[in-house]
Design a binder for these strands. Sequence first.
DNA 1: TTGTACGCGTTATCAC
DNA 2: GTGATAACGCGTACAA
Lengths: 320, 320
Amino acid sequence: MKNIADIAKIAGVSKSTVSRYLNNGSVSVKTKQKLDKIIQENDYQPNQFAQSLRAHRTNMIGAIIPRMNSYAVDETVKGVKTICDELNYSLLLNYTNLNVEKELEALETFYRSKVDGIVLMATEITERHLTIINKIQVPVIIVGQEHEQLHCVIHNDFHAGYVVGQALGKSQYKNVKFFGVTESDIAVGIDRKSGLIAGLREYSIEPSISLTSFNYQEALFDVTEELETQPHFDAIVGATDSIALAVHKYTSEHHKKVDKQFIVGFGGNPVTEIVSPSISTVIYHFEYAGEVAMNQLNQMIMQQAIEKRLTIDVTLAFKY
Amino acid sequence: MKNIADIAKIAGVSKSTVSRYLNNGSVSVKTKQKLDKIIQENDYQPNQFAQSLRAHRTNMIGAIIPRMNSYAVDETVKGVKTICDELNYSLLLNYTNLNVEKELEALETFYRSKVDGIVLMATEITERHLTIINKIQVPVIIVGQEHEQLHCVIHNDFHAGYVVGQALGKSQYKNVKFFGVTESDIAVGIDRKSGLIAGLREYSIEPSISLTSFNYQEALFDVTEELETQPHFDAIVGATDSIALAVHKYTSEHHKKVDKQFIVGFGGNPVTEIVSPSISTVIYHFEYAGEVAMNQLNQMIMQQAIEKRLTIDVTLAFKY
DNA sequence: TTGTACGCGTTATCAC
DNA sequence: GTGATAACGCGTACAA
């Protein structure tokens, strides 16, 4: 592998001339042509580490993701990646398997790797997150969760719940069941639920509420237990698509005579379309959120002033 | 951010002593204790780029993946990541959106980034792939596809098809339909199909074969067209879980009277479990394959001799 | 326009 | 056990 000195020697010029050729371009036409050819022939590439070492800048972005095989995460990363490509950043991925410790480690790791910025898809922002984020002097943007003191891109979860509530009321569903999740997750546990309640209230409907888990298997267990005792509702809402899918699984295996329960989820996961009959969902624009987040992060890296909090709207996809 | 010189100055020793403390550890007990404390207090971290610059080694692995929201890809990456963590590599991700050009670019990009090794999940290995891989002097391992001249970790696709064929025969299914994909994909297009045919032949069954796409929507279209003309089979096999899910979608929406068609897919995608009734699948151990691939890659980086071709076995998960 | 010399932070070599 | 020094590859004042 050739370095800048080799190229300089071959061209019969000095290192700095080659360097200038590569950066400013301020060289004579003659040497330019010579270098054009030589660099082509030897397909020379500047060593990025030497560059980083000198520039104190790596052109790398670290993304911390809670899990891999998740529609929301994958879509978001897709968006982040798109903008990284545009802006000429490399994307470093760190997956934490829903483990908070690993999440904190990942922040430290990226700090050591001297990434220019970090995209964090956390499930929860603890005090310790805050401490580390403040310690490391690296721009961080949260996507999918909200926090007063941090920059974040969030989905309009309250509104998502609200439109579902309204739509159900409008469609004359009276008897509504909601399977929610822990309130330690603000976005999903609180906002979606309150939105739904508010939307339904406009039609004087009060939903029956149960608690379950993000995990499909656990949700299926809870749903089974709950619906076995009280099997009929006009509509059943799951706080996530996974939960809605669990509901679908239970009802389609226990109500052969299709007493037509209306099922709704949140997220826009394509699997809601694959099951039969399809279930309704609120489409979240994860990929777009990823793009927005990465653009914001770039602004932060460039030291530009930006808003601390950006909200992405959702789209209702009802199967009437 | 402090560097090794700062630490040395604070401790009243030389840079080399600090460096030795960090690496060999060959320092006196006294200075060791002093440095323990000082490094702790200043939470000093060696600059990885300076290290890389010197060591000609980055401790980075590049993974090239065709798409994000895919069970197979995600599981494989999970396995790769696990071993990366163990071996102290950082994982750089490059997603190509099924675009061959981007795949080639990604190889070049990683080459420039001086990653120590590359994990390539290609859909197809062309002559141009080969050219670039030979040009860049970076160890590359293919996972999920086979190639004579390259190191690869593959799934036993022929055997997967074979066991399905046998199981169907054993179960007295006579009238078998197979939806396959293009033969330009050796693993899926050829091996699975030939395996199935061989397995069925032992029971003197010859399947009816149609061609379709990896894409769920396209598969659904093809399946619909095909099954509308000839609706009944004892068993229908899809070359991938996606295709099997499309079959499931069609049959459950058009055969209300459950004339019990047996559906089988390949991959072990959990969605086959979520739909109702569940469909059978052949479980592919993607995560394990990822682990194996990354371990192999590490061997290659360490200049150890390894086998060019490793095969991972599959597991049949039949819902009788 | 071009070349010289130095520094980015680290580690390996060699004296002491 | 410790310290001075050179080298990794690059960019940039500064001088020519």
